[in-house]
Simulated assay, not measured.
Amino acid sequence: MSFSSSTASGARRPGDALAAPSLRASVALIAGREITSRVRSKSFLISTAILLLFVVAGIVGSHLFSSSLGDTRVAAVGAAAELLDYAPGLEIESSTSAEAAERLVRDGDVEAAVVPLQDAEPGAPAFEVIALSDAPGALVQALSIAPDVRLLDPSPVDQGIGFIVAFAFGIIFFTAAITFGGTVAQSVVEEKQTRIVEILLTAVPAKALLAGKVIGSSVLALGQILLIAVAAGLSLMLTGQDVLLADLGPAAVWFLGFFAIGFVLLAAMFAASAALVSRLEDVGTVIQPVTWLVMLPYFLIIFFNDNEAVLTVMSYVPFSSPVGMPVRIFLEQAQWWEPLVALVLLAATAVVIVQLGARMYRNSLLRTGARVRLAEALRG
């Protein structure tokens, strides 16, 4: 028996069915489509550029503002110059007499002057501060007698810096989750409303469609976070804040890891929730519970960033651990094993949520009209 050359070589004959793409190829195809469509969007590019400029401007601007303040120039007479020689935040200029020091204050050459009192009584202040309208706080503090302080449990990080770091991590995660999660939800409903999803499901399975959307959005969100991290790191280096960059580095690396897994969890919830409705007008209603799951932990961490007990609990809750645990790492409150345990809990929760989200997505995707009840979507 002889075969034609085309048949023997395995070429497809007219009428043969096209082979269905594998699950991996389908997921890669959908993810690539999501990434390409977003990257080509002018709104995405403009918003990313504005966000990067905001981060760089915030770091550089705060450094320039703090540098412009400088030390307070103070004229000192006699023993006052020796007393204030090593006081922080003060630039001391010696003066020959009280009259000369007062003249410097009136001319605006110094902000204040410190002169000794000739007839000071025992136990009374031995110096007098001369200023035009008000005395500089740094000078008054340097002349004040402060008690010795002994801290039983000193914090390794300044509370003000801790609040800024908690706020920064929180706002980055919150903004990325709401922005990209909302995009995923809107995409799902648009495909249902225009019936494009019916065409897509003839080529790829529903789980591949969901996985592609989640992975594509996660890649975009993580890429944007990496750009922010690089921009912030370069800004800190250029402004000479290497110490803060070194302290922030480990926490930032852990934040990227937690963010990657945490966003997959949230993106699956946004997509599954959006599949319950068929109109864009109803998107806000169905994704509101997911939005609250992002907002509540964010506000708790911001308001209780100095409460170690609350911060410890929030660092293990899956919906808040992407922010809570990196903040604890920066504050040096976490043991070496705690981030690993929190990351495992987050990953396990993400697996469960993605499985439930896939069931809801698959059971609701082709149902148009009235909103699908949650119980029906889970039951199928």
Rank of each mutant, 00 (worst) to 15 (best):
S6D: 14
S9D: 13
S22D: 07
L23Q: 06
S41L: 04
F44R: 11
I50G: 04
I50E: 03
L52G: 04
L64M: 15
S68K: 14
L69F: 11
A87F: 08
S95D: 01
A98Q: 06
L104D: 06
D107P: 00
D109Q: 13
A112E: 10
G123A: 12
A126D: 05
I130V: 15
A135D: 06
A135R: 04
P136M: 02
Q141W: 04
V157L: 11
G162R: 02
F169M: 03
I171Y: 09
I172C: 05
V188A: 04
R195S: 05
T202M: 11
A206F: 05
A208D: 09
I215N: 01
S218W: 04
G223S: 11
G223A: 11
L238I: 15
Q241A: 13
D242I: 01
L245T: 01
A246W: 04
V253F: 13
L256F: 09
F259Q: 03
F259P: 00
V264G: 01
A268T: 14
A272P: 00
T285H: 05
P289W: 03
P297M: 09
F299C: 01
F304H: 07
D306R: 15
F319G: 01
R328G: 00
Q333T: 06
L343W: 14
V344K: 12
A347D: 06
T349C: 14
T349N: 08
V354W: 10
Q355M: 13
L356H: 06
N363S: 12
V372E: 08
